[in-house]
Simulated scan of single mutants.
Amino acid sequence: MAPTPRRRLLQATAALASVSLLAACGGGGGGTEAGAENGSDGGGGIASEIKLSGIYDTTGPIAYAGVGASKGINLAIEEIEEQGFLGEGVDLTFEETDSANEIERASSEVSRAVADQEVMALFGPVAGQQAATIAPMVEQAGLPTIFNQAGSEGVVIGDYTFRATAPMWSYYDIVAEHLAEQGLTDVAVIYNGTFPTFAEIGQTEFPKLAEENGLTITDSYAVQSNTQDFTPQAQEIASKKPDAVVMLLIAPQSVTALTQLDQAGYDGQVMATSVQASGNVAPAGDHAAGLIYPVDFSAVQEDELAVNFVEAFEEKYDETPDQYAAEGYDSMWWLARGIKASGDSSREGIQKGMAQVASEGFDGVMGALTFEGNDIRVPGLLVEWDGSEEHLVE
């Protein structure tokens, strides 16, 4: 019988996990005996049921990120349990709550998770402002928390806060390098100044990258999260005809901006962000054709783990995974590797184990994953949207 995509992914992930853990721990071990074999001082062992909590935006303007991460996490949980990665009969329960783009709701749900001593780890939220608000809460409580997205400052602040999405700025260098290689040296920037991740890139990181790569920023336009009309900026950009536009906007805004840039007569290159990936700009139709953006994962990747992940995800959900699903998937496997490394599924054991795994790095569906402390880093890749699907930029 031919192996299913799920089975192939389980086998490949198991093999890579074994190599990673052998390197990190100097030996094998699983189940409740792993803590003693690996020198864990937590001493708690691996419980037969490990309760996890997720707080994600599954409604609202950035729901696409929360929904994708949740699906990736749930696929990984199924595989971890099917494989018996943490020991036979070990169950991972994952209870999710919608933060609905509200800081107050996210804070309330985190307080509830912190108080529930059965909750061993937390995932989310995805919004930088929510994440920065709750980070001190989980740090003080000693609740291991893995953030997806949430690329702003003030999120990874101590031993118990982790991030499984590389900050967008950390691989945005490939955008500046591509523009320089193509001779597109005069660049206009339009960015959402309310969104911390985009503000950081627009105001600080891209100007540095531009200088390093010999690019000139001709104009820089800051807009707000509630900006829905980009006609003035589009008309000015079209009249000045820069070689390229760096567009740092949330998905709904980018659809409007791309449409209005095209209608204003701008025909230069537009470079965006991973927020525009996986079809988020499809509503712009032909106006979005030719858009290029950097991502930490794309379903068109050709390495084995990524191919198997795409097939398994499509088998489970009948849809193609986006980068948010890949981030959620790798983050769950990071946590599982951490539990196995320490042999301890308590809050303290998870923290120690995840830090240990981060110190060694591991291969995930996003590629060869390295870490700066508890903060993930990825190689990144450029993809182009042709109006209907993505292609790798060679």
Rank of each mutant, 00 (worst) to 15 (best):
293 Y>I: 02
278 S>A: 15
304 E>R: 14
306 A>W: 00
294 P>Y: 07
293 Y>K: 00
301 Q>N: 14
269 Q>G: 10
297 F>Y: 15
291 L>Q: 04
270 V>S: 03
297 F>I: 08
283 P>H: 05
294 P>G: 07
275 V>L: 14
274 S>P: 10
267 D>Q: 13
281 V>A: 06
292 I>K: 04
294 P>V: 05
296 D>P: 13
302 E>M: 14
273 T>C: 09
270 V>T: 05
297 F>D: 06
300 V>S: 07
282 A>Q: 06
307 V>P: 04
281 V>Y: 05
303 D>G: 10
299 A>M: 10
306 A>I: 06
284 A>Y: 00
286 D>G: 06
295 V>A: 01
262 D>M: 10
288 A>D: 02
299 A>Y: 10
269 Q>T: 01
274 S>G: 15
296 D>R: 08
293 Y>N: 03
261 L>Q: 02
306 A>L: 08
286 D>H: 07
307 V>L: 05
285 G>L: 10
266 Y>A: 07
282 A>L: 11
292 I>P: 00
276 Q>K: 04
283 P>M: 07
280 N>S: 14
300 V>W: 03
301 Q>S: 15
266 Y>H: 10
282 A>W: 06
273 T>R: 08
281 V>G: 02
288 A>P: 00
304 E>Q: 15
288 A>L: 06
271 M>V: 15
305 L>T: 06
265 G>S: 05
283 P>D: 05
294 P>H: 11
281 V>K: 04
263 Q>N: 14
259 T>A: 13
299 A>H: 04
301 Q>D: 13
279 G>C: 04
299 A>C: 13
305 L>H: 10
268 G>C: 03
304 E>Y: 15
296 D>Y: 11
308 N>L: 07
284 A>N: 06
259 T>N: 11
291 L>C: 08
292 I>N: 02
305 L>I: 11
274 S>E: 15
299 A>E: 06
278 S>Q: 10
277 A>W: 02
261 L>T: 04
277 A>F: 08
276 Q>D: 12
285 G>H: 01
289 A>S: 09
303 D>R: 13
290 G>D: 00
284 A>M: 09
278 S>H: 14
279 G>W: 09
284 A>H: 02
260 Q>I: 01
285 G>M: 05
259 T>C: 06
285 G>F: 07
294 P>C: 08
305 L>V: 12
291 L>P: 01
303 D>I: 12
286 D>R: 12
308 N>I: 03
289 A>K: 05
264 A>P: 04
299 A>K: 01
292 I>Q: 00
293 Y>G: 09
305 L>D: 05
268 G>N: 02
259 T>I: 09
289 A>W: 00
278 S>K: 03
261 L>A: 02
283 P>Q: 01
283 P>G: 08
276 Q>R: 07
302 E>Y: 12
282 A>P: 09
264 A>V: 10
267 D>L: 13
279 G>P: 05
268 G>P: 02
282 A>V: 09
283 P>L: 07
278 S>I: 06
284 A>C: 09
282 A>F: 11
308 N>W: 03
306 A>Y: 01
265 G>Q: 13
272 A>T: 13
268 G>W: 01
259 T>R: 08
262 D>I: 05
267 D>G: 12
301 Q>E: 14
278 S>D: 12
